[in-house]
Structures are given as C-alpha cells and as structure tokens.
C-alpha cells in the first residue's frame, strides 16, 4: 500500500517535472515513430493491397509510444553525476523513482504522439476491431514491463562503463530488427521467424501490435517467461552494481 502511494506521488511529481520539457518530449515522439513509419511505407509498398499492414504499423506506433523507455538518459545519468546517492539514502526502493519517471514519460509520449497515430490512421483509412484492441491490453502491459526491464538492465551497465548509450543503442537495434518493427515477423524467413518468436523482442512490440490489429492469436507465454527471467537478471545485476557503486563511490 505504502509502495503504491509513493509510486503514485512520484508519478505525479514526474508528470509535473516533464510537463516543462514538452518540446524535448516532442523530439522523443518523433524519434519513436520514425522507425515504424519507415516500416509502414516500405511494407505498404511491397504489399499495396493488404490493409492489415497499415493497421499493424499504426498499432506498432502506438505500442512503441506507450512502451518507450529511456533509463539510459534518466537512471544512468544519476549514476554518472552521483545523484543516485540521494536515492540510496531514501527509505524506499530506488526502483520506485525509476518506474515513476518511466511511466510519466510514457504518459506524455502517448499524449503527444496520439495526434500522429490518429492522423496516420485517418490518412491510410485504417479501421480497428475494438474487441481486438481490448484483447491486446494485457499484451501491451506485458510489453511495457518487458521494454522497461530490458532497457533498465542495459542502463545498469552504467555502473561499469560510461558508454551506456552505445549499449542501450545496441539493445534497441535488436528490438527494431527482431521485434517486428523492421518487418512484421510473419514476413521473415521461417528460421528467423521461429527465432524471433522465442526471443523477448517480439513480445515488446510485434505481438501486442498484431493482437491489436486483429492479425494474430499469439499467447502471452513467452512474454511471461521473459518477464520472470529479466526480473531475476535485473535484480542480480542491480545488487552487484550497487555493491560496486558503494565500493568506489560516485
């Protein structure tokens, strides 16, 4: 209960904090939608008669906006400038602050990106089956958790290296290639498709978008497994990282 209250308060704080940086958030929105838009244009050109391609990519844009994570800019910077010490001395788990900021940024991105999604949908005359959209909700939530855990895990490398942006950038490229943004994974060669389905990246983007677009009936199994795996790995890496931070200081 106390954790929920603290998280709620932190979320409110962060929403307020980021309200002053709407122009910066707009640049993040643009960065987030560019890759799915390229995918949309390329694959719509390849399959001009398939309306599900446009529907899928509009869903990918929305899922991307709702699940973007920037812990390499937020949390890692706290390690670099030493302000993580402030967080360590607060009587609450540090991750509450990280999650609060993550949710606030996502809320702003979704709000600011909604007109882009709407305009793209109208321009391409995309129609959604709202029962499919509703059915995709738990998939989107799991995707949001997965993207956060993955980005946070990579951001934790800031305890060891000052090149965290390169590390997270590499992780983002994997998500782009194997998550269903570069190409819907159904269009990949068989072997690649099977590999992509098993890896966590598909659950971060492609799967919830496919469900929302009414294209697939995939299960949440892999998403759930990867959430458990990443929670364990993040916990272990966090403990080792904090031990290192408290051994050498900021």
């Amino acid at each position: 209960m106390r954790t929920a209250v603290l998280l709620g308060f932190r979320l409110r704080q962060e929403v307020l904090e980021w309200s002053g940086a709407w122009w910066f958030l707009l640049t993040l929105v643009v960065q987030a939608v560019v890759a799915p838009l390229i995918g949309l244009f390329v694959w719509s050109a390849v399959y001009p008669d398939d309306p599900s391609i446009a529907r899928y990519y509009v869903a990918v844009i929305l899922v991307t906006l709702m699940t973007e994570s920037f812990e390499q800019h937020t949390f890692s910077e706290r390690i670099y400038d030493g302000t993580l010490s402030h967080e360590l001395l607060r009587p609450q788990p540090v991750v509450i602050g990280v999650i609060g900021m993550n949710l606030a940024i996502r809320a702003w991105l979704t709000l600011l990106g909604a007109p882009i999604v709407l305009l793209t949908g109208i321009a391409l005359q995309v129609g959604f089956d709202w029962t499919a959209v509703l059915r995709s909700t738990p998939y989107v939530m799991l995707a949001a958790i997965l993207v956060f855990l993955w980005t946070f895990l990579l951001a934790l490398t800031a305890f060891w290296t000052d090149r965290v942006h390169a590390v997270v950038g590499f992780g983002s490229q994997l998500t782009f290639l194997l998550g269903g943004t570069a190409a819907p994974i159904a269009l990949l060669p068989d072997t690649w498709r099977r590999v992509a389905e098993v890896l966590p990246f598909y659950g971060m983007n492609g799967l919830p978008a496919e469900i929302a677009a009414g294209k697939g009936s995939g299960s949440m199994g892999y998403q759930l497994i990867w959430v458990v795996v990443l929670v364990v790995v993040v916990t272990v890496v966090w403990r080792i990282g904090v031990r290192r931070y408290t051994a050498v200081g900021s």
Partner: peptide
C-alpha cells in the same frame, strides 16, 4: 546527510511545498 554541493535532490520542477510533502510521505 546534507551536502552543500548538492543540497536538494529530486525533481527540480516541483515547488518547495510539494517536495516537503513528498518527504512527509517518504518518512512517514
């Protein structure tokens, strides 16, 4: 632990009262 070089951590957009209120919650 108060450091003269970094006296105030946390969100800088918040008002002082909001920050104090957060401390109230945090420290019960």
């Amino acid at each position: 632990f108060v450091r003269g070089s970094q006296p105030v951590g946390g969100s800088q957009e918040l008002t002082v009262m909001d920050s104090l209120e957060y401390q109230r919650l945090l420290y019960d």
